[in-house]
């Protein structure tokens, strides 16, 4: 073994420095690889929503989802589900702002993030950010680990708890059923109050700002989803007296959650240098100690 004390310390110093450099990278978040064209999305104007739930029905129809019994006995009464579930991809609920006491209806569904946490989290890559803008799920890959459900800041992906072979289910922005056939989302098409507008995300942003500018007394000046969690393809408007947080749209940061985890992962594995460096350093230490034990005449270990 041609390794002596001096060489060993050299090796250890170099590899140690390399490992430190790699570990320090998480501090600077690397830029997201966002598509140049964000694709299509929806603008949900909660000030216009009348709470008729036509969108919920249209969603069930186009996705062929069963109605949900919301009573304890499981009877499928003419009633609305309480929360998103494996058979409810979108939901209208009334929310009351606790401070002002004002209430409004708002629609809930997948936000179709520009940099989706579910997509980053999925170990088999079952989630795809389609070029049309939708975040879709591939049942041919998914192994049902439910890490996407933990990762989603809005708790959107749902799991079929009562099936032996469960799917992950969520709003698809009608990607396969309508979008790729040149049609808008079913919920947007059916909305009688023009509260859901389907369109290109850039166009929707312009439209949202125009509405705010035209009626500043009617709108909160913020467009939710423009930057939250790195930006979403579904955007929201609200009344001045009903905060977004009271609508279930918390004031999330503007950096997409995957930026931190991915920069840690990619830092730790940068060109495989850190693991190889640690391997080499440990090998050096092992060789050094074996030689030292041998020189000591140590026969402790045969």
């Amino acid at each position: 073994m041609g390794i002596n004390r001096r060489n060993f310390f050299k090796v250890a110093a170099v590899t140690g420095a390399g490992a430190c450099a790699a570990l320090s990278t998480p501090a600077q978040a690397s830029g997201p690889a966002l598509p140049a064209d964000p694709g299509y999305g929806m603008l949900n104007d909660s000030t216009r929503c009348i709470g008729c739930k036509a969108c919920q029905t249209a969603c069930k129809k186009v996705n062929e989802l069963p109605s949900e019994g919301t009573l304890e006995d499981g009877g499928a009464l003419y009633d609305s589900p309480r929360a998103l579930s494996d058979s409810t991809y979108t939901l209208i609920k009334m929310h009351r702002d606790e401070q002002s006491g004002e209430a409004t209806f708002v629609k809930q569904q997948c936000m179709h993030c520009l940099d989706p946490a579910c997509k980053s989290a999925c170990l088999v890559g079952a989630f795809v950010k389609e070029k049309e803008g939708a975040v879709t799920w591939d049942g041919g890959k998914c192994m049902g680990c439910r890490y996407c459900m933990v990762a989603c800041p809005y708790n959107v992906p749902q799991f079929e708890w009562h099936k032996a072979i469960p799917d992950i289910s969520k709003c698809t922005l009608c990607h396969d059923t309508r979008l790729t056939k040149g049609k808008p989302t079913a919920c947007a098409e059916v909305c009688p109050a023009d509260a859901i507008t389907f369109g290109h995300r850039d166009e929707l942003l312009r439209m949202a700002r125009a509405r705010i500018a035209a009626h500043p007394e009617k709108y909160d000046p913020h467009v939710y989803g423009e930057n939250e969690v790195g930006g979403t393809n579904v955007l929201y408007l609200t009344k001045p007296k009903v905060g977004f947080a009271s609508l279930g749209l918390p004031a999330f940061g503007y950096i997409a959650p995957p930026r931190l985890t991915e920069s840690i992962q990619h830092g730790v594995f940068k060109y495989f240098i850190p693991p190889v460096a640690i391997y080499a350093a440990l090998g050096g230490i092992l060789a050094f100690n074996q030689r030292r034990n041998k020189l000591k005449g140590g026969t402790e270990h045969e």
Partner: peptide, 11 residues
């Protein structure tokens, strides 16, 4: 066979 190198769970 399906690799997503961005996923912590993958590693």
């Amino acid at each position: 066979i399906y690799w997503n190198g961005n996923s912590v769970l993958f590693e």
